[in-house]
Write a protein that binds this DNA or RNA. Sequence first.
DNA 1: ACCTGTGAATAGTTTCACAGCT
DNA 2: AGCTGTGAAACTATTCACAGGT
Lengths: 222, 222
Amino acid sequence: MKKKISLSSLNRLCQIYRFLERMIGEGKNRISSSELGEFLGLASHNVRKDISFLGEPGSVGSGYSASKLHDFLAEKLQLAKHRNVCVVGLGRIGSAVLAYEGFMASGYSVVAGFDTDINLLDTIKTPVKVYPTHMIDEIVKVKQIELAVIAVPGDATQNIADRLIRAGIMGIVNFSPAIIRCRTEGLFITNLNLINEFTLLSAQIALHESQAMHFQQDVKRR
Amino acid sequence: MKKKISLSSLNRLCQIYRFLERMIGEGKNRISSSELGEFLGLASHNVRKDISFLGEPGSVGSGYSASKLHDFLAEKLQLAKHRNVCVVGLGRIGSAVLAYEGFMASGYSVVAGFDTDINLLDTIKTPVKVYPTHMIDEIVKVKQIELAVIAVPGDATQNIADRLIRAGIMGIVNFSPAIIRCRTEGLFITNLNLINEFTLLSAQIALHESQAMHFQQDVKRR
DNA sequence: ACCTGTGAATAGTTTCACAGCT
DNA sequence: AGCTGTGAAACTATTCACAGGT
């Protein structure tokens, strides 16, 4: 059986993938593991190890071809697949995400917004269609939405998450401070909570001020 | 010399800290490591190990006192310290963060916003004072700002980060897609980029569809 | 000369298991 | 009976070092 790839490793590969896109856009095509590492703040070993987890990408002897490596990653990780996204909770953060046009270029379309506040749904100005939350199940299925952004207040989070999961969502980015409890196989969640991030930065700063700590490295969250 | 705490561990401790706040708010005071773990999705061993990294918190034999543990963490990680925050880039995400009132309760005050667009600075409606970016150095020092949120377009990120760092900022939450390159000792950075998160979720979903993968776990980023 | 891919070594983190306290 | 704190074991990830390719 194939060895399971680590999440850290997978995350680095995703960054490499996006970085390669940028490089290709700039017309550069040959790149070495140390240059890649340089840009992403990783050791060249680490870059090579991560890439070789997925198998031999082709260019053995002298750096990678950016486009070949890009396509290799796209195929192995299915990154070329276009996915539909919805946003639940159209407060300030939710509507900012809803209005952001930059996802398209990377293969994600925000195709629906949800909120419980009917007045808000009436008055909001956005090119994306918006619906009341009780329609989550229906719309997620009809529009084949696979990813969701949750930006509702903490006490509504679990409820919204449950609905999304029941509707068949496969990935959630959770901006709310509440932690989502769930044991659904094949569902992936990322928690991005600003207060938590501030708290962690504070703790790092405080600890650094007494003892030495490493820095510039992000966390294995939960 | 004191053993260095891991970033993952530190992050869990910060979550525990915030969770304890909620518990105390609800009037509950006694809690066991397994209950804590239950809520945060961790094993009870893990919770105890993390806590005991910081030393003996007091309540040995029968669960923790929520308030004692809270104060213990606050002291060890300096989490009671109030910190000032600024937001650079007042587009949709930046202004959403600027307008969010929820930070105060956790000890963070957003005290300044910055943008290069002078017209925007004139027209924006916010209780927080806003300034042109060339004033970053001055304002950060005068207002004793320690944390910054960067929400500018990718190509401006490095420049803004450099200014903030020169002004003496100690922690950055970076919402932009660009990775900040810097080797300043004692500076901590968290990258929260939605496209990256979507990409990672996609990759997890794709891999899960063939082989089995673990889930619901966040990443050691970079 | 410079590069990748990879086994082996090192370092780090998590889980186990249990002594000791309440 | 049920809990914590912790050394030791198991596991995981990263770094090294080098054979082999271009």
